[in-house]
Nucleic acid binder design. Structure first.
Length: 423
RNA sequence: GGAGGAAUACCCAAGUCUGGCUGAAGGGAUCGGUCUUGAAAACCGACAGGGCGGGAAACCGUCGCGGGGGUUCGAAUCCCUCUUCCUCCGCCA
């Protein structure tokens, strides 16, 4: 959520930055400010009336103790009652208006984020490693893995629906090894390990920015408690400290969480239908940070490095791009995407996304910290990044390290986990 | 699933039946001081935190006793509702 104080004091700058997202926010911002003006006016009146009422009520008690007649005072209080009620209703209404609009306004892109309207304007930061050269026609994972009995799409569809898969044999083992390997790497870098709830409530989804705007992407559980399947560990992870005040000396807090993520992929019908690149259910290792504002961009770079370290260790070719203002996610100010090279697509595909939400999620979730025990609370900055998408890493290994006989050479760092050099 | 009980400030804990100088006794922790060579102990002092609004600021107002709603001139206290935790029984990995 945007800072309404900033809106009041520097409306034009906010609109200018928001509009870099290739959408016009002018009307919505004006509507917020109108409601805000109204709210403050009404609030001042209400509070004045309440002060008078409180004083009179107090004098009722005092008068009664002295045994005096209180009817005259009671009559005076009665007068203000309905006025307080109706004004209060107006204030609440204005507040709801503000909140409803603000919850649907995205974060402002970082001042230095590259300007652009679509993914075509994203900026390549670097390319690492070389694309593989094959002396035979390489196979796509959806062919190769099925032939090797590592994946079974048809029976998964029978059990569940399309966009689900069964991992089998060394295929399943590779997925498990990758999870273990990634978590171990991050633990070595000081990320605390988490295992999080897979069902989250609407309040949590709202704090991180999935709701209200992207509700159709979530799987809702049929239950009167209104729960949703975890769409990314960012949701349960960032919400750990919702409505809390952290100690400045504890920051930054760094977490690594493996979760299985569930997404409707509502807007992607018909896209990436082959293979496991886009599934309703997928495994992901997520990195999370709660940081002081002044440190958050250094922490973002550090997080990017932690994600890259996985690909470097696995010797997979990848590139890093910075998203342009038109492509940055709703809650984020700055985002790097890591893309791994996949022979079947003859292209780089996203395998991780590393973002700084600055104080946007912290405001929505009321996550604060105090620099010292007597300091005013401030909002933390929240960061999250993939470290990495396990299924897509799996694809990258199978496709990039395939041999002519259909076997797959296991990256050295995974050999201790798989206890094999070839699968 | 059944039957009970609880939620008060950083922690513990009174107050709730019987509504009104109780925004909240007391203890612990913490911070500052006295004493001490230093420390401990003892003693003295400080101590909700926070949201919102006004103000240049000092400060003022408002809200606030798990959340939300209600009754009342007035609610920690009465009523409704939700959430969470605990105990016992049943079921269960």
């Amino acid at each position: 959520m945007l800072d309404i104080q900033l809106l009041r004091s520097d409306k034009e700058a906010v609109i200018k930055r928001l509009n870099q997202r290739n959408e016009d926010f002018t009307e919505r911002i004006e509507a917020v400010l109108t409601a805000d003006q109204k709210r403050r006016e009404v609030l001042q009146k209400v509070e004045q009336l309440k002060m008078a009422r409180n004083q009179l009520s107090k004098s009722v008690g005092e008068a009664k103790q002295r045994g005096e007649d209180v009817n005259a005072i009671l009559a005076r209080v009665e007068d203000s009652k309905s006025e307080i009620q109706s004004l209060e209703k107006e204030a609440i209404h204005a507040e709801e208006t503000i909140r409803e609009i603000l919850l649907r306004i995205p974060n402002m892109p970082h001042l230095k984020a590259p300007l652009g309207t679509s993914e075509n304007d994203n900026v390549e930061i670097k390319t690492v490693g070389n694309k593989p050269v094959f002396k035979f026609p390489p196979k796509a994972h959806w062919d190769l893995a099925v032939e090797r009995d590592f994946l079974d799409f048809e029976r998964a569809a029978k059990i569940s629906t399309s966009r689900f898969v069964i991992y089998k044999n060394d295929g399943a083992r590779l997925e498990r090894a990758l999870i273990q390997f990634m978590m171990d790497m991050h633990a070595d870098k000081g990320y605390q390990e988490l295992m999080l709830p897979y069902l989250v409530n609407a309040t949590s989804m709202t704090a991180t920015g999935q709701f209200p705007k992207f509700k159709e992407d979530a799987f809702e559980v049929k239950d009167d408690r209104e729960l949703y399947l975890n769409p990314t560990a960012e949701v349960p992870g960032i919400n750990i400290y919702r409505d809390e005040i952290l100690k400045g000396e504890d920051l930054p807090l760094k977490y690594a969480a493996f979760t299985t993520a569930f997404r409707q992929e509502a807007g992607s019908a018909g896209r990436d239908t082959r293979g496991i690149i886009r599934q309703h259910q997928f495994n992901k290792v997520e990195l999370l940070k709660f940081s002081k504002p002044e440190d958050s961009y250094a922490e973002l770079d550090d997080m990017l490095a932690a994600s890259e370290a996985i690909l470097i260790a696995l010797k997979l070719p990848y590139r890093v791009i910075e998203l342009c203002t038109g492509d940055i996610g709703f809650a984020m100010a700055k985002t790097y995407d890591i893309e791994v090279y996949l022979p079947a697509y003859e292209d780089y595909r996203e395998i991780g996304s590393i973002s700084n939400a600055e104080d946007y999620q912290a405001r929505r979730g009321n996550i604060r910290f105090k620099r010292t025990s007597d300091a005013k609370p401030e909002f933390v900055h929240t960061l999250n990044g993939s470290g990495l998408a396990v299924g897509r890493t799996w694809i990258a290994i199978v496709e990039n390290f395939q041999n002519e006989d259909g076997s797959i050479t296991v990256p050295d760092v995974l050999v201790p986990y798989l206890k094999k050099t070839v699968i």
